[in-house]
Structures are given as structure tokens and as C-alpha cells.
Design a protein around this nucleic acid. Sequence first.
DNA 1: GAATCCGCTGGGCAATGTGCTCAGTACTAC
DNA 2: GTAGTACTGAGCACATTGCCCAGCGGATTC
Lengths: 157, 157
Amino acid sequence: MAIDHLDGRIIVLLAEEPRIGVLEMSRRLGVARGTVQARLDRLRSNGVIRGFGPQVDPAALGYPVTAFATLQIRQGQGADVRAHLATVPEVLELLTTTGSGDMLCRLVARSNADLQRVIDRVVGFDGIVRASTTIVMETPVPLRVIPLVEQAAREGR
Amino acid sequence: MAIDHLDGRIIVLLAEEPRIGVLEMSRRLGVARGTVQARLDRLRSNGVIRGFGPQVDPAALGYPVTAFATLQIRQGQGADVRAHLATVPEVLELLTTTGSGDMLCRLVARSNADLQRVIDRVVGFDGIVRASTTIVMETPVPLRVIPLVEQAAREGR
DNA sequence: GAATCCGCTGGGCAATGTGCTCAGTACTAC
DNA sequence: GTAGTACTGAGCACATTGCCCAGCGGATTC
């Protein structure tokens, strides 16, 4: 759970050149191949590295519109709402937040017009009392973890 | 930009077993190795697959608290605020949304108490007028794209 | 102080996958 | 009918992987 400096460099290197391979990493980092392998295994079993899945860009898939919907849930209907939203492909993420029965929901759509269809499908469910939506215009900082990893590595020295 | 059924299966397979390799994929999909390779190249150059970076879990890194901050920005200070927030490691994502000068900001922290420090650092900047924060409690649907890919593949047939 | 554990090194091995090339074969478009 | 495109199946040299081992230093324990 504590991150080493070497661990940090491994993660950063892996983020910059995902197809790099253990051998090449060991060369660049100046350590033995087995060391890198062992560190990687540890990071994976620790859960720090969850996986290496492909990062898919919804925009390139034809879903250029992103929005966030704040949902107000009727008491006791939480589980049903979750199950409902899990079946909607355009729901990319669902979070429950502080506040009485609130959820935050990340959506994508093919266009602003299409967003209406998606929202209708999302809120067309009994347990949802109210929904308010904000559309994302720009993404100045796309989802990232590298700076956080570097900080954790620095502190974990 | 249009996704094929085969493309979809490639992405799904890659998401389920990221370390799988082209040869094994071609065997499972029942197509030639060159085909898979060509499809992958196309998906990458199309931008559909952005990369294969490691998926790091902030919680396992020691940052188990996630929060969203809605920031109200003073007119014309947008660029400065972005630059400021980009320097904060705990800022995992920054989005500009509809509404006058609003930004949405995804944060992590070591604890609820630590969140206060992070927020202070985030809002301790001239261009930010107001900030309201909601803490994430649960994640019923973690960030996902597979259902979307499958839908796109179905429609793109 | 001695014994022990642990992580790192550096090496060696067989097996496998990769990048690349090529010729042949559908299928579509013009 | 001809060109262009996509897929197949095969071959090749090369690099990488997964796995093993012996040795070595540092920290911990008794």
C-alpha cells in the first residue's frame, strides 16, 4: 500500500509507454529484470494497478457529448435505481454522494439532441424524483493519476 | 470512427484480458493474426483506443476519499484557474460545464480531514469565487465503456 | 555476535510471441 | 473488366517471456 520511488517510476514509465515490456523497463530503470517483475506483481496484488485495459475514447466512438446528471432518489429505492442505471450503456459511471439520496451520473450521448433521449431513459424510472443535468464543454484536465503517483512515491520514500 | 462487430469483440477481449497478445486474440476470434493487427492499428490511429496505460486505484495508493467540487470562476480567469488546478496532484480531472464560469473538479484525499487541506489548496486562488463540494460515498458503477462499445458495435454492423 | 529472512542481482534455458513479408483469394466500386 | 481493399495462411529472424538458480548485502531477531 505504501509506494516506493521505484514503484512510482515503474508506473510512470508504464503510463508513458504502455507497450514497453519488463525487460526494456529494467534496462531504463537500471535494475534487474526480476526486480521489475516482482514489483509489478506486488503492485497488481496490492490493487494499486488494477489492470491494463484499453482506454476507449467515447468521442471517437461517436459519443462526443458528455454530461453529468444529479439524481434525487426516493427513500429506499437506491438499489433499484442502481440496477436500472447499470443497464444503460450511456451511463459510464454512477456515484452516490453525500446529501439525502443523491447520485451523480456520468453520461455520454451522440449529440445534444440525443442526450435528451438518454436522459429520458435514465430518469424514466420510478425511484428517481428529480434530475438536473449539466453538459461538459471542455476537459482542461483529462482523467489522470500520474501526478498523484509521483506525490505518493515522493512521500513513501 | 464507425465500429465494426469484430472491432467490438477485440476491444471487449482486450478489456477482459489485457495481457493477451495479438496471436491469442486471433485464435479466440477465429480470424487471421494480420487481421487483428490491422484492426488494432486502425482503432489506435482512429483514436478509439487511446492507449493501454495502467489503471491505478487511488484508494490503494492511500487516497480513499473522492469528492467533486463545483467551482465558480471569475470572468476571464478561466485559463489561470486551469493552470493552477493542473498543478495540484489531488485534482484527477477538471471539466468546464454549462452555466456561467462553472467548472467541475474531481478530487481525492487521504481522509476526510485531508480533504479540507486539498480543498483549501484548490480554492486558494484568486479567480475562484465560490466552491461547493460533495463527497462520494459509494461507486455502484465504476467507470466503464464496455457496454457502450458493445452498443456501438451492434449499431455499426 | 550469529543466524535468519528478504529483496535484489545476474545468469541461463526452452517456449512463445512479435514484426515483417509475401502470394493468393474474395468482394466492392467504378 | 479492372482496380482497390480486406482477409487469409504461411514463413522467417529476432526479442521477450516465464521460470529457475546461486550469490550477496542489509535489516531483524535471538
